[in-house]
Structures are given as C-alpha cells and as structure tokens.
C-alpha cells in the first residue's frame, strides 16, 4: 500500500509561513513565553526545517513574575532540542528607570514587557519576531496580518496594513522597521489543544489541574504569591485549578478544574463557556485594552 501524505491544512499553512520568515529575514527570532501557543510554534518550526535544527533563536521576555513551572519547562525544552535561548528581564528595565512598576490592586508587569522587547530587538537587530498570537483570541487581533510591519517604535498602524493575497507574503522592510510574524494566526484555541494532543507535545504542568493557594477577586481566581497584590480581606484558600493561558502570574487567572490529562483538558475546552482571554486580567481593564497595547508595540 502506498503511504500518501495528507496534510493538516492549518499545520501546512503555519509551516509555510515559518519557512518564509527564515528565508526572507536575516535575523528572525521566536518570541517564547513558555505558553502553549509558543510551544506549538516550536514544534511547527522543528517540522519546518527537520532534519536541520531550527535556524533562529528563542527570545523570552521574562517579567520575573512567571510561574516557576514555566521557567523550568522552558529550560528543559531548550536543552532537549538544542535551541538557542535569549532571556531579557523586565527587572533590568525597571532598575534602569526606563519603566515604572505599577502599584496596587491590579498591578502587573505585563505591559512593561514592551520596553524590554523593543530593547532586545534593537540589541540583536532582529528584523522579524515570530509570535504565537491567534486572530480568534481577541477582537483587535482579528484584523492582524500574518506579516505585520512595525515601525522603529514597534508601533502597529492598523489603518495602513499591507493586504495579504493568496499565501504570498511580502516581508520587505526598511532599515529600522521590523515584522511581527504570526504563523498560527488562523488557529483557534481548540485547534492548538487538539494539535498538542495529537502530537503528544509536552506542556508546563500548570496547564493541568493541581492544588494551588489562591484567592478570589472580581469572580476570578488569582494565584496567592508575593508577586500578586492582595488585600487582607481576600482570603487564601487551596483550590483544584488549572490555567488556560500562561502569562505573568499577576495577570493570569486560574479556572477551577479537575482535568489532569490532555484528553480531559481538550474535553473541557470543547465544552467550555468562557473564552480564553476572559481569564486574562489585563484585557478586562477595558474593552479596547488589547488594541491600545498593540498600538504601542505590545506584540
């Protein structure tokens, strides 16, 4: 019997995009957060260039408030696949007085990442940053291009975007400009989870149900940690939870869950009723939150 390759259309598209990035740019980098989307990107990049190694480094902009499980996972993955990892710390930008730490109830270092990211782009002269953003995540992302041109200040001009026709990607940019490339633009959260399951991809343990010290605020479950502002009356309690996205501890809410295996997680996502970014505290600040952050260079 003939062994015929039939592609997963979304995977094929992503691989095509990643290969275009590697071919069209001199210094691409993969923005790696340790979350499931960037882990998926790493697998896709592996497939794109196999048996060669991934021809670009990973960049992690570390807020210093990451879940320790994520950092351990990151280091292990890099080690196993022989990847090059660059880490730049938000703490450095704070220490240098470039950005100011937020204070109080909803304080987070999430938006401070932008400065560190832009500094790293300048330091390494990256001309393309590969990100795991998906158009279904949030309304403002629905109009994002696969190759999104940013100016020297990292700014996104949504009214002046290049049209993208068929699957032809135009990555030509001027000195100082760079491109944010989004290979999994057309994936949904469920697509990602089903892929992780089919491919049996390892992900950080916090995606699975575990017991954790938490407290409840505004109907959301927050991690009790020295990094997360908490008022005295907000009582800490151990709960069985998992995370649907892995961002900074200060802006990622947990959900109550018993899903301990990938199978159970996928089933839970399928049946779920709260959209993924519903658990991102930074987006709750205002309806137009994501759009405002993107305009100033948040990826």
């Amino acid at each position: 019997m003939k062994n015929i390759f039939v592609p997963n259309p979304k995977e094929a598209e992503s691989i095509q995009i990643i290969r275009e990035v590697a071919a069209q740019f001199e210094r691409p980098v993969l923005l790696f957060s340790g979350g499931k989307d960037s882990i998926t990107l790493v697998r896709l990049a592996q497939k794109a260039f196999y048996p060669a190694k991934i021809p670009f480094p990973l960049l992690h902009v570390d807020t210093g408030h990451n879940f320790p499980e994520t950092i351990r996972f990151r280091d292990q993955l890099v080690e196993e696949l022989g990847l090059e990892l660059i880490v730049r710390n938000v703490q450095d930008a704070i220490d240098q007085g470039k950005v100011q730490e937020e204070k109080g109830r909803y304080s987070s270092r999430n938006s401070l990442q932008t400065t560190t990211l832009l500094d790293a782009i300048e330091e390494f002269k990256f001309d393309a940053c590969i990100g795991g953003a998906r158009r279904d995540e949030e309304k403002a992302r629905a109009k994002e291009r696969v190759f999104s041109v940013r100016d020297d200040f990292g700014q996104w001009d949504e009214k002046n975007q290049r049209p993208e026709l068929f699957d032809m990607l135009n990555g030509k940019v001027h000195q100082g400009q760079n491109v944010r490339a989004f290979p999994i633009s057309n994936w949904t959260e469920l697509d990602v989870w089903e892929y992780i399951k089919t491919e049996n991809i390892q992900i950080p343990s916090i995606y699975f149900a575990h017991r954790r010290e938490t407290f409840v605020r505004d109907g959301m479950i927050w991690t009790a940690s020295e990094h997360v502002y908490r008022e005295e009356h907000e009582e800490v309690e151990e709960r069985m939870v998992r995370f649907r996205t892995v961002g900074d501890m200060t802006c990622t809410a947990a959900v109550l869950s018993e899903a301990e295996t990938l199978e159970e997680v996928v089933d839970e996502i399928r049946a779920s009723t709260i959209s993924e970014r519903g658990a991102r505290i930074d987006d709750k600040r205002s309806e137009a939150a994501m759009e405002s952050r993107k305009k100033v260079g948040y990826f």
Partner: peptide, 19 residues
C-alpha cells in the same frame, strides 16, 4: 524521497508543506 518531519512518504497531495 518525500519527507515530512521525521517520516517519509511515497506520495503527497496538494496543500502539503513537505521537504
């Protein structure tokens, strides 16, 4: 040969990102 990741195939259909 037609490669996809660590596997080899006899044939591929349109839409495949292969090596």
């Amino acid at each position: 040969a037609i490669h996809f990741f660590d596997q080899e195939f006899d044939e591929a259909v349109p839409g495949s990102s292969i090596t």
